[in-house]
Simulated scan of single mutants.
Amino acid sequence: MTILAGVIGDPIGHSRSPRLHGHWLRRYGIDGQYVPLHVRPADLEATLRLLPRIGFAGINVTLPHKEAVFALADTVTDRARSVEAANTLSFRDGGIHADNTDGIGFIASLRQGAPGWPADRPAVVLGAGGAARGIVAALLDAGVPHVRIANRTAARAEALAARFPAAEAIAWDATPAALADCGLLVNTTSLGMAGQPPLEIALDDLAPEAVVTDIVYAPLVTDLLARAAARGNPTVDGLGMLLHQAAPGFAAWFGATPEVDDALRRAVLG
């Protein structure tokens, strides 16, 4: 019997997840299908109730639904509960089980793309949505001493920072000055994504050894990454996080633990 899974978002056309899971399905010879589903916020709950009834084993969740699906889940993992956001849902035992693999995917990508990154310095995170929640928690778990969170809507940054003793909210326009002693700059916003406004953050005060990473992967090299690389900073694109965060969901739905390797990266880039 064909196993069904997919990814939901609004928009969803940019997602590389179908290529990613399609590669793994072919590689491991699994009878499965993974499909993109454009779901608007008003239709989210009805969609989540429908999918298991038509045979879906689970779904990935992208913008803007990560916080909303957490609230609709019947059971949640500790790492999803710690940030009140989810990116991976499994439908089993008549309920919705929510997990958040953003953080572990981000750290795995960072360690692979920038081994030896200065984790003993503060980090600056741009954005305060569902992905930012998982990333802030993962950075602190990895030993980063302090995380500064900047968001265009200040209240959201303040709410996220309040969840962690070692995090603080900073004003959006204070970001350039906050980079002076940091070892990592992370963009979790949609700014810089194809079809979205650019991310206009000055990097003049960033130390040359500080790593710059962007969870946007369409385009693969965002303007932020290009500007950072031009001044000599190490950079990590957003594709690695996508690849690593996908593995737990694939294992849960399709019953095989997949490998994240160069062949997968080439397949997803197409």
Rank of each mutant, 00 (worst) to 15 (best):
A137W: 05
A142W: 10
L140N: 07
I170V: 14
L179N: 02
S190T: 11
I107D: 01
G94C: 08
W172M: 11
S82D: 14
R148I: 00
L184Y: 08
A159L: 13
A123L: 12
L179W: 04
D120Q: 15
V125I: 11
G192M: 07
L139M: 09
G129Y: 07
A177S: 13
N87K: 10
G116D: 06
I170F: 12
N87I: 08
A142Y: 08
A177F: 06
G105K: 00
A86F: 01
D102Q: 09
T153N: 10
A162Q: 12
I149H: 06
R156N: 12
E158L: 09
A98C: 11
T88L: 04
P165L: 02
S82L: 13
W117N: 02
H146C: 10
D120W: 02
S109P: 07
M193D: 04
R152I: 11
P118K: 13
I170N: 08
A85R: 04
L139G: 03
R133I: 01
R152F: 09
A98E: 04
G130E: 05
L89R: 05
G105T: 00
A114R: 10
F91Y: 03
S90E: 15
A98G: 10
A119Y: 02
W172S: 07
D120R: 14
L184D: 01
R148D: 01
P165A: 06
G105E: 00
D141K: 03
P115T: 03
G130D: 06
G127P: 00
A167L: 08
R111K: 12
A159N: 07
A154F: 13
M193N: 02
L126P: 02
T188A: 15
A166H: 14
S90Y: 01
V83Q: 01
W172K: 12
T101S: 15
A157K: 05
A142V: 09
T101M: 10
A138N: 03
G105I: 05
C182A: 12
L139Y: 06
A131W: 02
W172D: 07
A132L: 11
E168I: 04
I135F: 03
H146T: 01
V125W: 06
F106E: 02
A119S: 15
G103Y: 04
F106L: 08
Q112F: 10
A169R: 09
A169T: 08
L185D: 07
C182K: 00
I149Y: 13
M193E: 05
V147W: 11
F106V: 06
D120M: 06
V186L: 09
P165R: 09
P115H: 05
G129A: 14
A128D: 01
A157S: 14
A167H: 12
D141Y: 03
S190Y: 05
S90R: 15
E158T: 13
T88W: 04
L185S: 01
A180G: 11
A161D: 01
Q112P: 00
L140P: 00
A108S: 14
G116P: 11
